[in-house]
Write a protein that binds this DNA or RNA. Structure first.
Lengths: 352, 352
DNA sequence: GCCCAAAATGACAACGCTATCATAAGCGTG
DNA sequence: CACGCTTATGATAGCGTTGTCATTTTGGGC
């Protein structure tokens, strides 16, 4: 008698946790019927189902999802690795992933790599063992070992962020280059000709690199000076943004507009202007990137490029769910685009 | 022969995923020895270990943590439910939890309840089935069903946030009441006598309620008017903060200082002052709450109360880890305190 | 009343790993 | 060289669930 102990006690109280067997015993059916009643109730007679439901309530039974995952080899977990969690950039994306997953009863397991590709690899190594059914990554740069691991795992992968380049599997995002270039073009239409670029740190940061590339391409096409670039040594923040902006002005005092690779940096720049008593946009124009809520509220509000962070997360999750539901495994890139948000931190465009 | 199929193929290639058995076969040992080599290498002879390591590398074996969790009934997962993930308030706390857990090879499973206690209950219902080894909650208000579930699960629980009241199990945080009261007292020392309070939304939001309580207690003790309160209808944001601040001024135009229940609200208030051309702190004093980085960078920087969000997360995780390591299960509250950060958005204190 | 399909339920085994206990091998000691 | 003692390895079984297939029951249609 495998279940002697449990059968003898005849109750769920053996260790405080009821099993299928306990519920089945109480309802007078077999464990498999209880399992069915919970997962596919339409296959169980109404009367039986009612008895089972009572028994579940009486025992306080909670299905053991670890056992279920094990047996069915479906963990019901999606793993995500993001550079940081306390930056609204990624937090909003995660929120999108989370919301979409929740609607399909999947859980989200989150890892934070602090923009380090090596750390990303480590996190994935830990995650893969938990047999996630899909993976969401940030960016399209990964170590060879990461790529190998993911290929071997044979699960769908969505990269979020820049849409450029060949996806590992699937990809959702927008073109960083095009977005920055479009913003530069807009600033040019506003009459700015000496546009500086305040760039976030470049190490292991593909996004920053692509934004820089987009800036360079655009100013060159427009025949503007292409060397007005300062790069943040520290992670992008309001303070480091202000400092980098100050450095830009020191180096090129005649700069008429500063394009910042993140709204946070632009906010720092704006505060620096306020400290100096420089009117914006009369003394200098300021533009940000991302379209954070904060950028709409500053005085003056910041011109920026809005990217659909939340939707990127939703779409990433939706792509994974599609695969899990049987969609064919073909490479895909989804471009969610961007929107220029003209505001008062730059002069109005000419002839518009 | 249970393993006939696998033994005959003699390789890991049966479905792309190697098992302990495959590695053992290749290394010429039994599966249990491989298991030991991975978990307690010191119990395996060096030569054997070397062969096993080679076999692991050759097969690309990744331990199945689902199976491990199942068999050992140790999931290696901690569940956390927070009101939101894209508010640095909670994101930083989560980061603290995550960092501490990672050092001990535990994973973090995150749920977002949007300040709804009912949603918290739903999330926990989904989580408990995954047999987390511990739970981190936000706040100390929970539905009866939530309390019952947690009690039944028999796992350690840490509540983060306000330190007041009896913990469900363990608790880490600070006293919202005392922190706000201390800030009011500080503003009083600065000479402010008509201090208004801009309060975040109160629904299901224990923190906001406690901050309000702290404000009320303090102004009453100081003999100040205690009715200058406006409450945000919408979630706390820069815009809603600005609007609520405007409402405060409309209702009580002689207000000489606005205490905001969050730095974000205070930033909104500051921007509103900038729009009106009101000098801060000369026309009106502004104070925030939380001690966000942003508050230090505005012009002028905001007086606020710093609370150790990241450390609260770390400590919460540490408390759980302690329990898992065998610490006695007794109720505990850890008070991490707070720090008043006097800045230029308020007048300097008198006689100091 | 009989037959056959559909509906409802059950028996059995196995997922990959590790807890437990047992066995084998090494090794200094009297 | 038998003894105990440590070190190294293995055999067995089972964690709680569900996939697969088998069996029983139900319910018309003739």
């Amino acid at each position: 008698m495998l279940r002697a102990k449990r059968t003898i006690t005849g109750s769920a109280a053996h260790d405080g946790r009821a099993t299928l067997h306990d519920v089945a015993h109480l309802a007078g059916v077999s464990p498999i019927t209880v399992s069915r009643a919970l997962r596919t109730p339409e296959l169980v007679a109404a009367a039986t189902r009612a008895r089972i439901e009572t028994a579940v309530a009486d025992t306080g039974y909670v299905p053991d999802l670890v056992a279920r995952s094990f047996r069915s080899s479906r963990s019901g977990v999606i793993a995500a690795v993001v550079p940081s969690i306390d930056t609204s950039q990624y937090a909003e994306m995660l929120q999108g992933v989370s919301d979409e997953l929740r609607r399909h009863h999947l859980e989200l397991m989150v890892g934070v790599n602090g923009l380090s590709l090596v750390q990303e690899e480590k996190l994935l190594r830990a995650f893969i063992g938990r047999r996630p059914e899909g993976v969401v990554l940030s960016g399209t740069e990964h170590t060879p070992a990461t790529r190998a691991m993911l290929a071997r795992a044979g699960i769908p992968v969505v990269e979020t962020g820049s849409i450029s380049g060949r996806p590992l599997d699937m990809k959702v995002g927008y073109s960083e280059e095009k977005a920055v270039a479009a913003l530069v073009a807009y600033l040019h239409r506003c009459g700015y000709r000496r546009i500086g670029f305040v760039c976030g740190p470049l190490d292991d940061n593909e996004r920053a690199k692509r934004r820089r590339k987009g800036y360079l391409g655009a100013v060159q096409r427009l025949g503007l000076a292409a060397d007005r670039i300062v790069t943040l040594p520290a992670p992008a923040g309001v303070r480091s943004g202000a400092e980098a902006f100050a450095a830009l002005l020191e180096r090129w005092p005649d700069t008429d507009c500063a394009l910042c690779s993140s709204d946070i940096i632009a906010v720092g720049a704006l505060f620096e202007c306020q400290r100096r008593g420089w009117p914006v946009p009369d003394r200098i124009g300021l533009a940000g990137f991302l379209g954070l809520d904060l950028a709409a509220e500053t005085v003056p509000p910041l011109t920026t490029v809005k990217v659909a962070r939340y939707d990127i997360g939703r779409e990433a999750a939706a792509l994974l769910l599609g695969r899990l539901a049987g969609a064919p495994a073909r490479r895909r890139s989804v471009d969610l685009g961007f929107t220029i948000l003209p505001r008062q931190s730059t002069r109005p465009p000419r002839g518009g």
